[in-house]
Design a protein around this nucleic acid. Sequence first.
DNA 1: CTTTACATCTTGACACTGTCTAGTCTGATG
DNA 2: CATCAGACTAGACAGTGTCAAGATGTAAAG
Lengths: 216, 216
Amino acid sequence: MSESNTPAQPKRKSSYHHGDLRSELLNAAESILSEKGVESFSLRAVAKRAGVSHGAPAHHFTDVRGLLTALAAIGYERFINCQNDRQRLAKADPESQLAASGLGYIDFALENPALFRLMFSSEKPDKSDDHLARVANAAFNKLVDDIQNLRQIDPYIDSAIMQEVMTAWAVVHGLADLMIAGRAGRAIAFEQMTSAARDAALSDLILGALGMKPRL
Amino acid sequence: MSESNTPAQPKRKSSYHHGDLRSELLNAAESILSEKGVESFSLRAVAKRAGVSHGAPAHHFTDVRGLLTALAAIGYERFINCQNDRQRLAKADPESQLAASGLGYIDFALENPALFRLMFSSEKPDKSDDHLARVANAAFNKLVDDIQNLRQIDPYIDSAIMQEVMTAWAVVHGLADLMIAGRAGRAIAFEQMTSAARDAALSDLILGALGMKPRL
DNA sequence: CTTTACATCTTGACACTGTCTAGTCTGATG
DNA sequence: CATCAGACTAGACAGTGTCAAGATGTAAAG
């Protein structure tokens, strides 16, 4: 978010070949996405914000599909980072680590709702893309690892443990999706909580779904 | 889905004033939606399928937003019906009834993925619309009732019970959303199960998240 | 230094989208 | 029969993504 408001000469070079347009387009795309949402995303608006003609993106991403696929892949990397960030700040026991991962999942969704929607609820990214498939897989594998650390059993061997993976994923994903849709507030007013209280409530919910907290 | 393939004279009347264009547009809109998805939905395509000019929908729905709002409201009614259908077929005890409601939730999502996305993950429907808000509220209230029947406590009084509402909602919604995104299969291959086995697995998951099944 | 090759970016065209406006048609009311 | 209001059509407009052709700068080869 440094330049990009001076569409004339982005760096110092001439207008042609200005360093790396590719990453500049990705930056512009992300800001447009978060402003307009997935459904009003416009490739031409991205080009304009990057200070380049409307045909320029095609050379780097062929399609709008290609651009959004690359953006979704970047999203998954940041998504995993959000979870890791939370885990670094949490206690080391597997239970706290799993809850922290879930909180990071939700952090990401709340901070990047449009990007989250692009990653999980849009048809536009090409799921068969190598890079995207790899990072999306990495995100899932992280969850599997967290559960394995908790239960000391490989979910791929014990289907009951894999069911716990599915439960944890569903609860956390459902919470994230309902929260960014503004619907969760109907049941629990997360918005009006301090972040500490919110984290505690969410942790309770997540661990509770796995039967790991004294209920009531 | 009777006519609508004979764009000439839909009923028997002249081309003008042909009965109720409004509901015919809604029918066309739903089929277009399920074919193309929310992101490629086109108002002009709806008009064409209804055998009417591209400006006609405006008179009944003003916007594409208005059309999709009405469609989302219809979706919520069918959504609730799906849950009721399941409950009629299930055992009468509150536990079975709650699980049945969740299965109906997922049924609807799998049978109407695009409509489900329109209802829960799209910005296009006008959430402040009276009819839409009412039916969306009814769907949530149904869940609250199911939990209340199970626990014999009003969730609006006991926040621990409301937390169970949120848990149940999140698990079921998360499952539905991940399944229609084709991602749940990474953990559990629901697609390759018989419908009976699938129902059992999902019920286990849902009730398990509420601590209601002997785990393992 | 010139020339050639090439990737990069621009420009204009195309079909398509949603919305606006003005106009046309139809059926019922007086 | 004349009138009128609602239902629908038809054309225009700005905006979209994609395609083809051209212009531009860079770098390598002669």
